[in-house]
Computed example of a mutant assay.
Amino acid sequence: MTASCSVCGAPAHPGAPVALCLTHLLEAHEWVEAEYGQTDLLPSPCAFCGSRLGVRYPSGWLCAVCEWRVGELPPDAAAASRVDVVYYLRFRDRIKIGTSANPAQRFAGLPHDEVLAFERGDRRLEQQRHAQFAALRIPGTEWFETDDALLAHVASLPPDPWGLLARWRSEAAARG
Rank of each mutant, 00 (worst) to 15 (best):
Q127M: 05
W143F: 15
P103S: 09
E145S: 14
T99S: 10
L62Y: 07
V83P: 07
L62Q: 04
G50Q: 06
P103C: 14
D113F: 06
L116D: 00
S59N: 06
V85Y: 11
F133I: 06
E142Y: 03
F144M: 04
Y57F: 15
R92S: 12
Q128A: 10
L116S: 00
Y88D: 04
F107V: 01
G54Q: 02
A108C: 12
R124H: 09
K96C: 07
P111W: 04
G98V: 02
G54Y: 08
R90P: 04
A149Q: 05
I138T: 10
A101T: 14
R90F: 08
G109E: 02
L53Q: 11
P111V: 00
L110N: 01
A80T: 14
Q105Y: 12
G140Q: 08
R90I: 01
I138W: 02
Y57S: 02
H130S: 05
L125Q: 14
T146E: 14
R82Y: 09
C66P: 03
A101C: 12
Q127D: 07
F133P: 02
L151N: 10
N102S: 13
F118Y: 15
Q132R: 15
R69P: 11
A131I: 00
R82T: 11
T146Q: 14
Q127N: 07
L62P: 00
R120S: 09
R52H: 12
G98T: 06
G50R: 01
G121E: 12
I95S: 04
Y57C: 02
